[in-house]
Design a binder for these strands. Structure first.
Lengths: 221, 221
DNA sequence: CGCCGTCGTCAGGTAGTCGTCAGGTTGAGG
DNA sequence: CCTCAACCTGACGACTACCTGACGACGGCG
């Protein structure tokens, strides 16, 4: 039996899922939109699994995932999406997701995946509460009293890296996350954005830097 | 970078998957049927993820999974199946699977799922805190509180030796692992990299050293 | 229309990585 | 002791991934 945090705007799906999971012996905590999810799930350490809809009225589920991660939530995340599109899945994984399910889906399968996730748990150590905070609502990075606004692309890019603190995120994955529509961007464009983000991090005197690992990708240190 | 055990009877899929994973930076060990999978995967503690086809010539992938689990294999399992049938998925999860992918699938998505599993699966704590840890996520060697970044070639080389702790790995095998594209490298190049890696190990005060065994190869002690 | 911010690209420079070499050191065998 | 081969190691040139400042294109907005 697992405790599940569910964020979904469609009342019908919300009901079916929470009822279905209850029948499989799981407890569900519900949120209606991204803001609600942040308030209810960010600090709840008793949650075993999070289920997030990608298309929410007030935010993108991936941003919600990133925000939850940066506020210390370590439970594994499963994304729901109406689209079966590949790039959605890839950028979801890049945002730090652990699993993915396309609508329409069977509640029985969802329950199975939830159990698999709860069983496995999540390794990534809850990184020390680094004082770098990504605010998806305002597209800003905050460090202590300083803050800078990021452009949408900059935000997605930085989010992809911060979602795995300390780890090296491959260039390919960063591009998938920052350009979720699968647009072709020159390799150099990524470099450019890295420079812009670095300048902004410097501006707020962030102790964490966006380091590049030659031949592999980027890393937050 | 993860080490993946793949069991699949279709040669075409086998090739596409192992080649595709290689392009994403993963190493693949292949088995053709269930028996082969048991022999090769049951005791291999270096595997990060297992990919099993459900429909094998000599056995059901789910049975293979159960058998591997009962012989102590703890790596997360992803099932492949030709059918998108729901009951296949459910019984797969029941057999102890961690993920599932229906054919036809995108290799990019498979790679993403493999990475998600490998990330989660690395739960196994470093048995000895004084041990040397090769961390694929950060492309680094860690020893206690010290860590050094490795270049891609250094990482592959060291990984080849650490994957068989204590054993002597032949020079030919090390070269094959560190230069997977089959490039011709002078014998001296290997010596060179050994020196570079030694310096880095020394830098983090590792108790383990990269020793050379004259006329045979290298060994970690 | 003109202004402004974001976007993607480019060109030039920098520095890390790569593979090789040359000269020194070590070890085995006669 | 000498010889030879295997190995170590510091250095070097070539390559290229990456950095960075600048620019034109485009869309939103007054």
């Amino acid at each position: 039996m697992a405790k599940v945090g569910l964020c979904e705007d469609d009342p019908a799906i919300r009901r079916v899922v929470s009822e279905g999971l209850r029948l499989h012996g799981h407890e569900t905590v519900v949120a209606y939109d991204g803001g609600e999810a942040l308030r209810r799930f960010a600090d709840d350490t008793t949650l075993d699994v999070l289920i997030l809809d990608i298309g929410l009225p007030d935010a993108d589920g991936r941003d919600v995932c990133v925000a939850l991660r940066s506020s210390g939530q370590v439970a594994p995340v499963l994304f729901l999406t109406a689209l079966g599109e590949l790039h959605e899945r890839l950028s979801g994984f890049a945002a730090g997701a652990d699993d993915y399910l396309a609508k329409p889906f069977s509640v029985a399968e969802l329950a199975m995946r939830v159990e698999a996730l709860a069983r496995r748990g999540r390794v990534v150590a809850p990184s020390d509460p680094s004082d770098l905070i990504l605010d998806p609502a305002r597209h800003a990075v905050v460090c202590g009293d300083n803050e800078v606004l990021l452009t949408p692309t900059e935000f997605r890019l930085l989010a992809a890296v911060t979602s795995r603190p300390g780890e090296v995120v491959r260039r390919r994955a960063v591009i998938a996350a920052a350009w979720p529509d699968g647009a072709h961007v020159s390799d150099n464009t990524l470099d450019s954005y890295a420079t812009r983000i670095r300048r902004k991090l410097e501006q707020i005197e962030s102790p964490l830097q966006l380091r590049s690992v030659r031949g592999v990708g980027y890393q937050l240190r």
